[in-house]
Amino acid sequence: MADSYSLMQEQYRKILVTYLKEKNEQGLYYAQQFSKKVLENQISPEEVVSLHIEAIEELFPYMPEGAVDSFEFLLEVMMGYGLAYREHQSLRDKQRELENEINVAASMQQTFLPKEIPFVQDLDVGVLSVPASKMSGDYYHFVKDENGCVGLAIADIIGKGVPAALCMSMIKYAMDSYPEQRLQPGALLENLNRVVEQNVAANMFITMMYGSYDPRVHHFYYSGAGHEPGFYYNYAEDSFDELSAKGVVLGIRRDSSFLEYHKKVEPGDFIVLLSDGVTECRTDDGFIEREEITNLIRQYKHLPAQQLVENVFYQLEKLQGFQLRDDFTLIIIRREV
């Protein structure tokens, strides 16, 4: 520290002399560079004034007494700044620490989500999940059982950020504890609801849609717990239907039950599951209507499912000025033609 101080002292004297001699832009530029360096080396404002006093006393040994004293006075004034500066420093360090912790948590949260989408004969699956900030309140899950049936879940945890992420870990662990064999969607939600109801604060809840796809017969069974309805695309008729499943959100009533619905999936048909970040997209002109989403999907439906979801996301992000207000998740499962 002493070393760097004397080095700074030497440097300051040099640029000051240069400036006093030439009084040009270049000199001011050096001053700017120097102030950057001062910040980097965490030298406080009153220390900079000291540097100035020392340099000046050396350059002008016969300064009037009042001038010298006035610098001492300035030094005193700068003390307060120095204190504020040090406080700022320590806050910045703390903030950096917090940020690091959140980064660690965010990368840990990434491990809650499936690393890859299971490959299933005749199915084309696309998934995209983008958090509005570092931590996400959206969750999705894929599991393939020994019969080749695919279980898939999409969930939205109320709120955003760290609390939502903590809550997500509960869902993840509960779902991992279920047996490999296919659980009926209704039964799975009832099960999960009991876990959630026991473990969340009074004003927390989770919405979820759970579906199970049997690729041997191409049936899709699904149940919903207050989740934003998805869409069902009918290839033969080139039309979109609402894919809704009535049921109360998870975490309200211990004994909630969930109806099970069913669709026979024909070649070319696809299922769209989404989080409300998709339909609650807000633009300057208000909310995006659900019809606009199906229009976007229609526009890209010739693409493979993954490219389809990516294109829809890009367009919605563009509509919002590339500033997501809510976490965004979109899943498409298509029976190949």
């Binding site: 109320i158 709120g159 604060a201 009074a202 004003n203 927390m204 959100v249 309200i252 409300d276 609650e280």
Partner: peptide, 13 residues
């Protein structure tokens, strides 16, 4: 929004 809904859920409970 959903946080707002949460307040009504809390009030219900």
């Amino acid at each position: 929004d959903s946080t707002g809904l949460g307040i009504f859920v809390g009030a219900l409970k």
